[in-house]
Simulated assay, not measured.
Amino acid sequence: METILTIDHLNKKFGKIHAVKDVSFEIKKGNVYGILGPNGSGKSTTLGIILNVVNKTSGNYKWFDGKTDTHHALKKVGAIIERPNFYPYMTAEENLKLVCDIKGIHYDKVDEKLEVVGLSDRKDSPFRTFSLGMKQRLAIASALLNDPEILILDEPTNGLDPQGIRQIRDIIKHIASLGTTILLASHLLDEVEKVCTHVIVLRKGEVLYSGSVHEIMASEGFFELQSENNAELKALLQHHSAVDKIDEEDGKLYVFLKSPLEATDLNRYLFQNNISLQHLVKRKHSLEEQFLQLTNHQ
């Protein structure tokens, strides 16, 4: 699979603030990547560096396996890293044609990209009449005019209402289905879980996890258990080879696993050791739970 972007031990310092700390990851063609982290985690700074608008302190990055220099590589990149900035008195179509003039792109791309973002019926409306969500969709259309190989979005649903968020998510999925690689930065776990195939988790400028969304969520999970004698139940389970740790809350044991264990096998094991359960539920970690575990352990 072709590598679109390689980031290798990237660092950025603003005075005493180490905003990006030894960050490394790869972006492969055809996937949707989410850089996930709270505000101040280094997401926007990392994007700024690879888009050549922020100077790195040290480390390296290369586009398209290093076969193209950054200046020419960025011609194959579409990006929105700031709020949309169009002329308010001009129509959607006129604003996009102006972008075409600046970038040397044929006008026939305008209608095509307005269709992609669902704004064809508003192409003759002045930009000032657009809602925040429509402005963001027009910005995405603008970033797509050059048919980029990768689309980079910084907090694409920030400030939008639930309907606007859903529209942007659907557009991102549609663009990805057409074969465009996407890299988006977000502090919203739900956004990354619903849209992305891969995730890079950042905290205070450091990478805590880099891999597929499926893998980060596909841990062995945990059991909720309860019996007449939880102390006896806990003592027995502490010696089980599949058990990682046990927490107790509100009369229930939360048994976290380090290797696979099915509910039927656990129930049989406990019954053979003279323990009958009043409550047994097996759960999987959500992305939110995994993210909190990652960030709380640092």
Rank of each mutant, 00 (worst) to 15 (best):
M1D: 14
E2A: 10
I4N: 00
I7W: 00
H9Q: 15
H9L: 01
L10Q: 00
N11G: 02
F14H: 10
F14Q: 05
F14M: 06
G15F: 13
K16T: 14
K16H: 14
S24F: 02
K28F: 14
K29E: 15
N39H: 08
G40P: 02
T46F: 01
I50R: 00
L51A: 00
V53E: 01
V54Y: 06
K56T: 05
T57A: 04
S58N: 03
Y61I: 00
G66S: 11
H71M: 04
H71S: 08
V77F: 00
V77Q: 00
G78N: 10
G78R: 06
I80T: 09
I80E: 06
I81Y: 01
I81M: 02
F86K: 00
M90F: 13
E94F: 05
N95E: 04
N95G: 05
L98T: 07
G104S: 07
H106F: 08
H106M: 09
K109Q: 12
D111V: 13
D111T: 11
K113P: 01
V116K: 08
L119F: 00
S120A: 04
K123Q: 11
D124R: 14
R128H: 14
F130M: 13
G133A: 07
R137N: 01
L138Q: 04
L145C: 12
N146P: 06
E149K: 07
L151R: 05
D161C: 13
Q167T: 05
R169C: 09
I172S: 01
K173P: 07
K173Y: 13
S177Q: 12
L184K: 11
A185Q: 12
S186T: 15
L189I: 14
D190G: 14
E193N: 08
K194D: 06
V195N: 04
C196H: 01
C196V: 05
T197P: 10
H198T: 09
H198S: 06
V199K: 01
R203C: 05
K204V: 08
E206D: 08
E206Q: 14
V207W: 01
S212N: 13
H214P: 02
A218G: 15
E220G: 04
E220F: 15
E224H: 09
Q226P: 01
S227N: 03
E228N: 09
E228R: 06
N230F: 03
E232Y: 04
A235T: 12
L236I: 07
H239Y: 06
H239R: 11
H240T: 03
D244Q: 15
I246L: 10
D250Y: 13
F256G: 05
S259F: 10
L261D: 03
E262G: 13
D265Y: 09
D265E: 15
R268T: 15
Y269F: 13
Q272D: 15
N273S: 08
N274F: 07
R283G: 03
S286W: 09
E288N: 14
E288K: 14
E289I: 02
Q290R: 09
F291H: 00
Q293K: 15
L294Q: 02
L294M: 12
N296F: 02
